[in-house]
Amino acid sequence: MSELVFGSKMMQLLIALILVSTFMILGSTRLYSCVRAFGIQSFLLAGVAGIVAYSTGKSDIYIVAILTLVIKAAVIPYIFIYIIREIKVKREIALYVNISPSLIIGGVLVVISYYLVRSINIRTELSSFALSASISLVSIGLFIMISRKKAIMQMLGILLMENGLFLGAISLTYGMPLLVELGIFFDVLIGVLIMGILIFRINRTFESIDTDMLKTLIG
């Protein structure tokens, strides 16, 4: 069994676990467990990047893997927990769509992503699974943003989408050029910080972070 085959087997398992973590986020009603699932997912992503780095032997991708580990699996979850703790928000997330329908929609999105990937002709076993997982992550992230009321969950949805794109980039082209990857990490980190600031601001001016409140500007 060659290294690459073993690598792709591991990769598939990691991607399956990434899907599991996505559904954990979809199926959870507590902020902390959502954040934890996100952290696990980022950790798995770092693992995917690590395997790709190992099997291609490119040092660039090792850097990307380490950055994913540090920024997405450690720093960003920490920022989330800090925000949740500081604004003393209720730990249960409020929903527009209940958990069970959410899960079903999530499943449907995965199917749609699969057919989308099938319709553009990209063949190899690894990348078609990874790519459909990546597109499902993006679409589920989008779905989380519109179906959850708390501003924090919208932030999490964006990060989920970003994770999906990261997976897509890794599986399509073994990642983007290093300069671009670094830029993306920088933007994601700054973006999270600024969204954090905005959430504090929302909490202070509206005394809640339910996005229900944000309905004054219409027309």
């Binding site: 399956a16 559904f23 954990m24 199926g27 958990i99 899960l103 079903i104 999530g106 699974f129």
Partner: peptide
């Protein structure tokens, strides 16, 4: 809240079927 847990399981089984088809 139990239906949530069991729907996660149901969805994961469903995903297993989908990924079987994908892979």
């Amino acid at each position: 809240r139990l239906p949530n847990l069991l729907s996660i399981s149901l969805m994961l089984s469903f995903l297993a079927l989908i990924s079987f088809i994908i892979v």
